[in-house]
């Protein structure tokens, strides 16, 4: 009898404790998301905004566009923008992974003191605004910026190379902004790595490569997957970085959505693009999360 009341009390306390978090999620995530979905089924206002009339135009717009002369055409540009975004976000994730893995490994093997200093340094950029961090790359990459001045000083080139306002500049910016999200999850899984297993692997005559492939890799997979999600998802929707470092010449998904709410004044289409992006992200996360569970099990 007493045990059940105690269990009930614990459960009640759990529910009570969860209430603030659930309310927060509901008010600041679920409701706005519902609004986005609702907006995507409305009619566009003439000068932006929406008219409260049901319409599926925004979704048809994903497939067909009206050309300037009023004729309909397949919306091939959307596919181009989508694939550009996927490629850039994928490359960002890959480069982040290649840099983050050794970094996380190195940090995890340090003394407690050094470790906390290094972790603080990794988090440090977050203390300044994203715009400021991105703008500083303009100063570094511009024609007469640090990189070009160094290259000319060393004598590698005599004229500045165009670095800014290219896809490469976008990539550098994205990697720089999102790399902490890759380092930290990998770090936590590397830190939990049992040294005994590594010793056992070497005792059994595994080469370094085999140890990485068969022991370290699988054991840190949850961290790698978590990090990849945390980098891939925001890169896919990024719009400040492509806008500032890409010179606004090549749209990415995030900038296409931004364009709909400003210059193009087509809010429902912007909303339907957001819904599509969200769906794509959820599917990707679902697949990755299943793999993470399998990797752990």
């Amino acid at each position: 009898m007493t045990t059940t009341t105690r269990a009930q009390r614990i459960r009640r306390r759990t529910i009570l404790g969860l209430t603030p978090a659930v309310t927060m999620m509901g008010a600041f995530m679920v409701i706005p998301l519902i609004l986005v979905v609702v907006m995507s089924f409305m009619t566009r206002g003439q000068y932006g905004g929406i008219v409260w009339e049901f319409s599926t135009d925004a979704y048809q717009r994903l497939i067909y566009v009206t050309r300037l002369d009023g004729s309909l055409a397949y919306n091939l540009s959307f596919l181009a923008i989508l694939s550009r975004s996927l490629v850039l976000a994928g490359l960002t994730t890959l480069i982040c992974l290649l840099i983050a893995f050794p970094t996380a490994f190195y940090v995890a093997r340090q003394s407690q003191r050094t470790k906390s200093i290094l972790l603080l340094l990794i988090m440090f950029p977050f203390w300044s605004n994203l715009l400021v961090r991105t703008t500083s790359w303009i100063i570094i990459l511009r024609d007469f910026g640090f990189v070009n001045q160094f290259l000319m000083w060393v004598g590698i080139t005599s004229e500045p190379i165009t670095l800014l306002f290219t896809n490469g500049a976008i990539l550098v910016g994205l990697v720089y902004v999102y790399i902490p999200f890759m380092i930290l999850p990998i770090y936590t899984s590397v830190e939990r790595l049992d040294n005994g297993l590594l010793e056992a692997s070497f005792d059994l005559f595994a080469t370094r490569f085999q140890t990485v492939r068969h022991v370290i890799g699988p054991l840190t997979m949850p961290g790698i997957i978590a990090g990849s999600i945390l980098v891939f998802v925001p890169s896919l929707g990024a719009f400040i970085t492509p806008d500032l470092l890409g010179g606004g010449k090549k749209l990415m998904l995030g900038s296409l959505i931004h364009l709909q709410f400003t210059t193009a004044r087509n809010w429902p289409y912007g909303a339907s693009l957001s819904v599509l992006l969200l769906a794509a992200v959820l599917i990707a996360m679902f697949i990755l999360a299943r793999r993470a569970i399998r990797a752990r099990g």
């Binding site: 050309r67 300037l68 181009a80 606004g248 090549k250 364009l259 210059t263 193009a264």
Partner: peptide
């Protein structure tokens, strides 16, 4: 104008 901008920047 909006259509023109989208087609220009895509």
């Amino acid at each position: 104008e909006a259509q023109l901008m989208t087609q220009l920047l895509e």
